[in-house]
């Protein structure tokens, strides 16, 4: 049997950080949704009841924020948008429908991934700051609490919207992407197709 050629895409550290973020995000998001709407309160029972969820949702969010800070430190340097990325974003609608002529080639991360990174970083800062206010309502000034009950869900909505797209792109929409984040490798043709600049740089090395 001929073994496939493999290119290393995400090392163990990156994968571990990513999945710690994913798990804590999922916990925070689902318990947050339980407290978001009476119609979703059944989720609170899945996670041990309302009192437990009220007690642990802030901790889940805190763990996520800490993991995201680690991820930020690792990846922020690679997430700067260059001129090709800006062009890519202008042609994102063509990328979305698989008409990729004229869409600039991407580096290790494409512009969509970079935008996800920055938007999640912003949302996490907002969620964590307002989350601290909601955590201890009895000691927080009323004005801060009123701002927090509005900003916390708005940031969560933005974040969840981005994550829905992220999960879709990382699983069904781009075959091979999930394996790159689980096992860490991609095939050369995958890299050449989706991240050509990164493929070339990696091959030259």
């Amino acid at each position: 049997m001929q073994s496939e050629r493999r290119m290393a895409r995400f090392d163990l550290y990156e994968r571990t950080v990513h999945w710690l973020a994913a798990l804590s995000y999922l916990y925070a998001a689902l318990t947050g949704l339980a407290l978001w709407s009476h119609k979703l309160y059944w989720l609170a029972w899945v996670f041990g009841g309302g009192v437990t969820v009220r007690g642990l949702h802030p901790w889940g969010g805190t763990i996520f924020a800490v993991v995201l800070a680690v991820m930020f430190r690792k990846w922020a340097g690679q997430m700067k948008l260059d001129t090709d990325d800006r062009e890519w974003l202008r042609k994102a609608h063509k990328y979305a429908v698989h008409e990729e002529e004229g869409v600039p080639e991407s580096g290790r991360f494409n512009a969509g991934q970079k935008m996800l990174f920055w938007s999640q970083a912003l949302a996490t800062v907002l969620l964590f700051a307002t989350g601290l206010v909601l955590w201890w309502p009895e000691v927080m000034p009323r004005t801060l609490r009123l701002a927090a009950v509005l900003i916390h869900p708005l940031a969560a909505i933005g974040s969840i919207g981005g994550i829905i797209i992220h999960i879709y792109m990382g699983t069904a929409a781009v075959p091979g992407a999930l394996r790159s984040m689980v096992q860490g490798w991609v095939t050369p043709s995958w890299a050449a197709s989706h991240h050509r600049k990164w493929y070339r740089e990696s091959s030259e090395r």
């Binding site: 050629r5 879709y168 929409a173 043709s189 050509r196």
Partner: peptide
Amino acid sequence: HYVRYGPKKEHADA
């Protein structure tokens, strides 16, 4: 989106 456009293909060869 998946129903209409399906997954991304690997259009380039190594």
